[in-house]
Design a protein around this nucleic acid. Structure first.
Length: 383
DNA sequence: AGTCCACAGGAAGGGCAGGCGA
DNA sequence: TCGCCTGCCCTTCCTGTGGACT
């Protein structure tokens, strides 16, 4: 069925990038001064997941690099995904990785942070021309370690003699700059490029382009692509989601030995992706979070909503039964709010006037997922 | 108009596990 | 193996609050 499944993954680089001409041109014109040896402005790119930010950055910087190489101009591109665990999720690791990309030999641990900063700085000194540092998912790192490292990076140009540094920040979070010091904010977002979500029509064209590469001809039933794009458009116009849907639908139909991908496979793919997401997030939660979730699932099998206090007393009983020491209400309250943020349960703060303020908790999961989760916790704790 | 419930959620710090160099 | 550091989970203590009730 598949000719080249890679074409449905996010790493695949399509020949033409659709519906992002404006962003490509903006970014290209911001980075263009580096071809004349001038330093380009720092840029900030915003847009929710699957709106093509990373793709465009990689595309434009690669183009820039190849033009620069042709003209024998010194341009160096450093790309780092700050969310990669154990690679760039602390200030030290980020600086070490940057220094290594510049050819500096640094140990993966052991040096004080200021020393690694110096090494990185001297590596920069040895460069000539322009260095573009692309920091993908920068919001994740700033939320984790604060914005001081960004402040240092934005000020680095003042001390460099031959080299010019331009920072390209990529963020999924549109309100991300709220977390930052205003000095960092203003120097980092000299230029801003917004990536709006794709609409269903745009998604359809993107999928069309890729299916021709990915599937053997005539493998898709009419309407499959439209269905994938419509579903993904509802979900913040996420192209990644659209591709996943199509890929999983293909895999499911292959497995069911159907000779064509049908619309029902897309529905199946949708629920499989959702189920996998929820089950995976819950699996990685700490023990008591699972127990709290189990309590909530048990209590919400009827229709009525429940409050934090109700959950806590039931949870205490469960702990007693299992001979596990229980957590405080403060912590359980926090766990409930985490589960809400992860999208596993719904919890909204309401006031019942004379009867206090609490969270109204409900669960909006299909029976299928609900069953899987209950089963998972039961197995784990021999309930 | 004021009270008061049943929590929300911030701040600070304890304690533990895991990773590190010595 | 030891001490040190860091990150994470958790507790303790605390202040804040929407709105039904008086």
């Amino acid at each position: 069925m598949f000719k080249n499944k890679d074409a449905l993954t996010t790493n695949w680089k399509p020949e033409n990038i659709l519906h992002r001409d404006q962003q490509i041109n903006e970014l290209a014109s911001i980075l263009a001064p580096s071809l004349k040896g001038n330093d380009p402005s720092n840029v900030f790119l915003y847009g929710s997941v699957g709106t093509g930010k990373t793709l465009i950055v990689k595309h434009v910087t690669e183009e820039l690099k190849s033009v620069a190489d042709d003209k024998e101009i010194d341009v160096n591109i450093l790309y780092i995904n700050c969310k990669m665990k154990k690679v760039a999720d602390t200030e030290y690791r980020l600086l070490a990785k940057l220094a290594r990309q510049l050819g500096e030999d640094v140990p993966s641990t052991g040096l004080p942070t200021d020393e690694i900063y110096n090494r990185f700085f001297s590596a920069l000194q040895d460069q000539k021309g322009v260095v573009v540092i692309a920091l993908d998912e920068i919001d994740a790192l700033v939320k984790k370690v604060g914005d001081e490292f960004l402040y240092n990076l934005t000020r680095i140009n003042d001390d460099l003699e031959h080299t010019k540094v331009s920072i390209l920040g990529i963020s999924n979070d549109l309100n991300f700059t709220d977390y930052m010091d205003s000095r960092v904010k203003s120097s980092l977002s000299e230029e801003e490029i917004i990536f709006p979500p794709y609409n269903a029509i745009e998604l359809r064209e993107i999928l069309k382009e890729r299916t021709d590469k990915a599937f053997v001809d005539n493998m898709l039933m009419d309407g499959v692509i439209s269905k994938c794009s419509a579903l993904a458009a509802q979900e913040h116009g996420d192209a990644r989601r659209a591709l996943d849907l199509l890929r999983v639908a293909g895999e499911l139909s292959e497995r069911s030995e159907s000779d064509i991908v049908e619309k029902r496979h897309v529905d199946m793919a949708q629920s499989k992706i959702e189920r996998d997401r929820v089950v995976e997030t819950v699996r990685s939660q700490p023990k008591h979070s699972k127990l709290v979730l189990y309590t909530i699932l048990e209590m919400t099998s009827g229709e009525e909503d429940i409050a934090t206090g109700d959950v806590y007393s039931e949870y205490k009983e469960l702990c007693e039964e299992l001979e596990v020491s229980e957590l405080t209400q403060r912590r359980v309250s926090g766990l409930i709010s985490e589960l809400d943020m992860l999208g596993v349960i719904n919890a909204k703060v309401i006031s019942k006037g004379r009867y206090g303020r609490t969270r109204q908790i409900s669960v909006d999961l299909s029976e299928n997922i609900r069953g899987r989760l209950e089963q998972m916790v039961e197995e784990k704790f021999y309930i």
